[in-house]
Structures are given as structure tokens and as C-alpha cells.
């Protein structure tokens, strides 16, 4: 089993299960009755398309398997992804962003921005030094403050700090 095959099978599985789950939801869910066409007409069409493309992807895998050309399955210019690095980056950036934004709402925009930026630079920048970690984040904080508070007057709940 090569990477591409696993990827394609996974893709088909995701697409098919989404489509089937959706159709079940249409059967069981409470949809407010609408005049002339059922109110789930558009989602239903989308679910049919999902199932059809899932079957299509599986069919393509089967066809390639029969012709013993599985190696050619990969679409042109597909990248190989570094899963560990993506995992690290998702946890630092995306999960970090959740905490960052909670901090923006509760502690204050500028302080949180400087802190979050410092963390990101320290973890991600290949040649970060103590000097740049101390200099760059306050600059970003200043830009954010100028732009969003001074120029745009963004509305935020009253923060603890500034």
C-alpha cells in the first residue's frame, strides 16, 4: 500500500460517509415543511453528489488496480506532506490561535498579540534569536494597535489590560 492509495481510500471514505450521514439526517431530522419543494432539496442534492463522487473515486482506484498502474493514481503536482511537521504546526498555530483569541477577548488585544507573536516566532522562525524574539513581536503589536484600534476603531469587549 503506498501513500497515494491510502490517501485516495481515505478521501473516498470521508466523502461517502458525509453523504450517507447527510441522507440519514434528512430522513430523521426535523425539517420545517416548505411549499412545493421540500426544504432539504439543496442539501439532498449535495449529498447525492458526495456519494456519486465517492463511488467515482473508488471506481478510479479499482480501475487503476486492475490495470496494475496504482503508481499513476496520484494527481499531477500532488505534494507529499510532512505529517509530523503539519501536526506540530496545527497545534502551535491553530490551537494556539484559539487561546490567543480568548486572550484577546479577556485580557487585551496588544498584550496577547505580542505574546502570541513571540511564541510563533520562537517556535517557527528557523533563525530566531533572543534579540529578534524581543524586537519583532512589539513591532507587530504596534502595527495591530495602530491599524485596528486607532484607524478602524474595532469593537472589543472591555479588556483587563489595554
Amino acid at each position: 500500500m503506498n501513500h497515494t492509495l491510502i490517501k485516495e481510500l481515505l478521501a473516498a471514505a470521508v466523502v461517502l460517509s458525509l453523504g450517507i450521514a447527510g441522507l440519514i439526517h434528512i430522513q430523521l431530522g426535523a425539517w420545517r415543511p416548505a411549499p412545493l419543494v421540500p426544504s432539504y432539496i439543496m442539501p439532498q442534492t449535495a449529498y447525492y453528489f458526495l456519494i456519486a463522487s465517492g463511488v467515482w473515486i473508488l471506481g478510479a482506484i479499482g480501475l487503476f488496480a486492475i490495470r496494475k498502474r496504482l503508481a499513476n493514481l496520484a494527481p499531477p503536482n500532488a505534494e507529499q506532506h510532512d505529517l509530523i511537521a503539519v501536526g506540530v504546526s496545527v497545534s502551535v498555530m491553530l490551537i494556539g490561535a484559539v487561546f490567543y483569541f480568548l486572550a484577546v477577548l479577556n485580557i487585551g488585544l496588544v498584550v496577547s498579540t505580542v505574546l502570541f507573536n513571540a511564541i510563533l516566532v520562537a517556535v517557527l522562525a528557523p533563525n530566531a534569536s533572543l534579540k529578534t524574539v524581543l524586537i519583532v513581536p512589539p513591532l507587530v503589536g504596534l502595527v495591530v494597535w495602530l491599524l485596528f484600534i486607532k484607524l478602524i476603531g474595532m469593537t472589543l469587549p472591555t479588556p483587563l489590560l489595554f
Binding site: 507573536n117 510563533l120 516566532v121
Partner: peptide, 19 residues
């Protein structure tokens, strides 16, 4: 250097979307 640009762009995208 993307090491400094990427974090800044990421933060701008978050705050900009809120604003």
C-alpha cells in the same frame, strides 16, 4: 524571511476577520 512574516500574517488574518 517567512519565519517573521508568517506569524504576523497569521495574526493579521485573525484580527482582521474579527474586525
Amino acid at each position: 524571511q517567512p519565519g517573521y512574516m508568517i506569524p504576523a500574517v497569521f495574526i493579521l488574518a485573525i484580527v482582521g476577520t474579527y474586525a
